[in-house]
Write a protein that binds this DNA or RNA. Sequence first.
DNA 1: CCGGAACATTGACCTGAATCAACAAAAAAT
DNA 2: ATTTTTTGTTGATTCAGGTCAATGTTCCGG
Lengths: 251, 251
Amino acid sequence: MTETSFNPSSLSTGAATGYGEPVTDCATCVVRNRAICASLDAEELALLGRLGRRQRVKAGHTLLWEGDDALVVANVLEGVLKLVVASADGREQIVGVVFPSDFIGRPFGKESPYSVTAMTDAEVCIFNRKSFDDFASAHPDLQHKLLRRTLDELDRARHWMMLLGRKSAEEKVASFLLEMSERLSGQGCNSGARSGFELPFGRQQIADILGLTIETTSRQLTRMRAEGLLDLPSRREIVINDRAAMEALAG
Amino acid sequence: MTETSFNPSSLSTGAATGYGEPVTDCATCVVRNRAICASLDAEELALLGRLGRRQRVKAGHTLLWEGDDALVVANVLEGVLKLVVASADGREQIVGVVFPSDFIGRPFGKESPYSVTAMTDAEVCIFNRKSFDDFASAHPDLQHKLLRRTLDELDRARHWMMLLGRKSAEEKVASFLLEMSERLSGQGCNSGARSGFELPFGRQQIADILGLTIETTSRQLTRMRAEGLLDLPSRREIVINDRAAMEALAG
DNA sequence: CCGGAACATTGACCTGAATCAACAAAAAAT
DNA sequence: ATTTTTTGTTGATTCAGGTCAATGTTCCGG
């Protein structure tokens, strides 16, 4: 089994107030200006920082299980994580992919509606959900940021519903590559929507995002390469040669 | 063409400040305690009321077009509306269905990411988006309600993504019927999750919700009737005979 | 009550993607 | 360096659901 349970205590540094390392300085945080924390002033930030813990999560480890009590929320500092809904018989659908500065978890909820699993080694800034809820309730600006983010996520999810329900395998793969090229360039250090990028996940996970099988996904990519649309320099690297054609295929 | 543009001026009552009828008394509003307005006290309610207009929308008419500037947001007072994402070649995916007391629109956004069309004759309490944004920004409780609602919608959307990406036609139809039986009983005057209910939409629309064709949808329903799982007393009525079996089919 | 339009069902057939299976290549472990 | 494991590709075949076409049913206006 590749995906194992996340065990807080195994990573504890012995801090009295919880697991993970205490947050030392939010002001110098890598995502200070991009995460929801951007809505806070120095004083509030210090207050929130006291509630948070920095936490490393290894690739394949699960931070939150679907159906379990959602005890924590978090900001992503580094790495990529997936949100997964599974059926009783093991089929999986990835319903979201989160990048650095994105927010994870279900505030004001009881149980997590999906699992959150690291796709790469990751680092998150984790909060006890209840304390976070209280803090958020007392800080309208933070709630406003959270609302905007949630609205954006909802738009993205609905757009993805169109892809899942109505697009062909070819359209799905083309749409996926274009979206990933955009999202990865947003955080990666390189310039705008570049044509070459490294996916943080393998074929099976692409299939789980697109509602396809691994075979169909692989065949589509191979075919696109054969047609000169893209190059596949290595397993996880994609170079889009003809962006316009790709956009046409995406529908 | 069944679905026609919604023309505000054609329904104007001549109120100087906008289209639709001015709101007279929020305190007696049918959704007073269920809509986001429930977060407001009498004074705030009066203030918000002044910004709103009651607006009837006939079945098939579109309130908001995908890609257009999202000039308004609204509360649903009566009727059922659909949120639709369409592709260039006309394929449609329904990405949301809204009932009385639900909120419509995209606050803090520019263009609407989907069309909003009435599936039945409907009545909404409509606001200019900008004024609503301002009002919301000044009223944290309202924003909190909106955040909770948006989080719930996001959960629902993600759950639906699993259905669209990974379920068979049979599982889709079974899941749909169960969810509708729940949601319709929530607002309908009858008791808990009853087994008989009237859908507010036809076969094509069910297909557009499930990412299927109308033929497949129809065949699944016919087969379920043949197997005694349900009755179809009329076009839009559904009676679930064996709820447990239906849940088993839903996966 | 009749006629037409919109909506729904049913059948025959086809096809895109799933499934089953073998193999190849890369990565990890020894 | 070599074995083992994991991941990805390719081919043959099947089948669920789409497409095309005909027919049946309900609804609505006159």
